[in-house]
């Protein structure tokens, strides 16, 4: 049996997330609408601990968070903290979530994403001395929640890839 290694379920998805983030940052308007700006690595922060526990995944998530901070020009350390918080919570609740239906996973994903955005909101408010607009926050939360099918696909695709982690 072919063992699915970290290259398949960690490095390739991380590279895809980076490429899509760069792509969506292009300053163009399509028919008067700007491109959405979801936090793509949140999908990975949710899916990776459910696929299997690993030391590589949180390290790569830390790198992805730093990439977001550097690329978007935000406070250094903001997105690593949010992504790893989600990873930690899902890792701790792994036994509860294993084998659950997609609807339950979506509710958990939504709660984790909201928690991550609340952490980011608080950090930015303390850092900048002003609370960001809630409407603007919704503009980033909604596209991120709509990306749940990608997380679900990853879990389905890689969950049974290695029998040692069943």
């Amino acid at each position: 049996m072919r063992v699915v290694g970290p290259t398949q379920w960690v490095f390739y998805p991380a590279l895809v997330a980076i490429a899509l983030t760069v792509l969506l940052a292009t300053p163009v308007e399509l028919f008067g609408l700007k491109l959405p700006e979801p936090v793509l690595p949140l999908i990975l922060a949710f899916a990776w601990p459910l696929i299997r526990p690993s030391m590589i995944a949180p390290a790569v998530l830390f790198g992805l968070g730093l990439f977001l901070d550097m690329f978007w020009g935000g406070t250094l350390g903001l997105w690593p903290l949010c992504l790893l918080s989600v990873y930690g919570v899902v890792l701790a609740s792994r036994n509860l979530l294993a084998g659950q239906e997609t609807q339950i996973l979506f509710v958990w994903y939504a709660l984790c994403a909201l928690a991550a955005f609340i952490v980011a909101y608080l950090v930015v408010t303390l850092d900048a001395g002003r609370a960001p607009s809630l409407l603007s926050l919704l503009g980033q939360v909604v596209p991120t929640l709509l990306l749940f099918p990608a997380a679900d696909w990853m879990i389905q695709r890689f969950d049974d890839g290695d029998v040692r982690f069943r």
Binding site: T26, K34, G73
Partner: peptide, 9 residues
């Protein structure tokens, strides 16, 4: 050449 337009930056 690139843009970040979220709530935080």
């Amino acid at each position: 050449i690139s843009e970040s337009r979220g709530p935080f930056i």
